[in-house]
C-alpha cells in the first residue's frame, strides 16, 4: 500500500492510501467529532458530524468514509463546520425524547458529550416529542427507543461481529425505527444470542443493562477492536 502525504489543519502528515481522513487525523492527535463511526465495524457515514473541508472541493466530505490522497489539504475546524455540527446535534435531540437527569447513561453518553464538546447551551429547534416505546422484554437488556439516534451501530455490530442480525431499521425518513426480527419484542427474538455487544456499542442510553439506575450505565466498546484485529490475523 502506498503512503501519501497530506496536510490536516496545517499539519503535515502521512498515511496509507487505504486509510480514511478520520483515522489519519486521529493517529496524529487531531480529533474529529463522530457518532455513527465505531472502530471494529464497517463505516456508515450517516451522522455527518465528521464532515470536513477539503481544499479544491466545494462539497464537504465525511472524514470517516473519505480516503486520504496525495497532496490533500484538509481542514477539520471552522466556524461553518461547528455551526453545522451544532445544528445536527440539535436535530438529534429534537428527534427523540431525551431527559438526561433520569437516563442510565447520564454522564456516560456520547450524544451528551458531543453537545458539551460543541458547547451547545440551548436547543433552538422545536422538539418533535415522538411517541416512542420502551422494550423491556429481554431478560438482560432494555431498549428505550426514546433515546435512539438511529446510528445503526447496534445493527452493524450484531450483524458483522456477532453474526445474528437481530436488529434492523424499519420504515424510512423520520418514521425510521429500530426493530428486532419481524418487529417482535426483543425478548422473543430467536436470533438474539444475548451476547450484549449491541449494548456496549450503543453510544446513548437507548440500549442498556437491566437493573441500572440513572447514570449507572457505563459502556466500553473497545473489545470490538481486539475482535476485529483477531479476525484479521486469522484470515
Amino acid at each position: 500500500m502506498r503512503v501519501v502525504t497530506l496536510k490536516i489543519n496545517d499539519q503535515e502528515m502521512s498515511g496509507r492510501e487505504d486509510e480514511d481522513i478520520l483515522h489519519v487525523a486521529r493517529e496524529h492527535g487531531i480529533e474529529i467529532p463522530t457518532l455513527c463511526q465505531l472502530d471494529g465495524i464497517s463505516e456508515w457515514g450517516g451522522c455527518r458530524l465528521c464532515l470536513v473541508e477539503i481544499e479544491g472541493s466545494a462539497k464537504l466530505s465525511a472524514a470517516c468514509v473519505t480516503k486520504v490522497s496525495e497532496g490533500m489539504v484538509v481542514n477539520t475546524e471552522s466556524e461553518r463546520l461547528s455551526g453545522y455540527r451544532k445544528t445536527i446535534v440539535e436535530m438529534l435531540f429534537t428527534e427523540g425524547n431525551h431527559i438526561c437527569s433520569v437516563c442510565v447513561s447520564n454522564n456516560n453518553c456520547e450524544l451528551q458529550d458531543m453537545s458539551s464538546d460543541l458547547k451547545i447551551d440551548h436547543i433552538s429547534l422545536p422538539y418533535r416529542y415522538p411517541a416512542r416505546t420502551v422494550d423491556a422484554s429481554h431478560d438482560l437488556f432494555i431498549f428505550d427507543a426514546n433515546r435512539c439516534i438511529l446510528c445503526t451501530r447496534c445493527v452493524r455490530v450484531c450483524d458483522q461481529v456477532e453474526g445474528a442480525h437481530t436488529w434492523d431499521i424499519a420504515g424510512r425518513g423520520i418514521q425510521s425505527q429500530l426493530i428486532s426480527d419481524l418487529h417482535q419484542p426483543w425478548g422473543e427474538s430467536d436470533s438474539c444470542t444475548s451476547c450484549g455487544k449491541c449494548v456496549e456499542a450503543c453510544p446513548t442510553g437507548a440500549l442498556f443493562e437491566k437493573g441500572k439506575a440513572a447514570g449507572e450505565m457505563v459502556k466500553d466498546p473497545k473489545f470490538l477492536v481486539y475482535l476485529a484485529d483477531m479476525k484479521a490475523e486469522k484470515s
Binding site: 442480525h165 437481530t166 434492523d168 431499521i169 424499519a170 426493530i179 428486532s180 426480527d181 419481524l182
Partner: peptide
C-alpha cells in the same frame, strides 16, 4: 403478512429483521 415474510426470509436465508426492513422501506 408475518408468515409470508418469515417464509421468504428462511427460504432466501436472509435475517428476519432485514426482510422486515426492506418490506417497510
Amino acid at each position: 403478512d408475518d408468515i409470508a415474510l418469515a417464509f421468504v426470509a428462511h427460504s432466501l436465508r436472509i435475517p428476519l429483521s432485514k426482510v422486515y426492513g426492506v418490506a417497510t422501506f
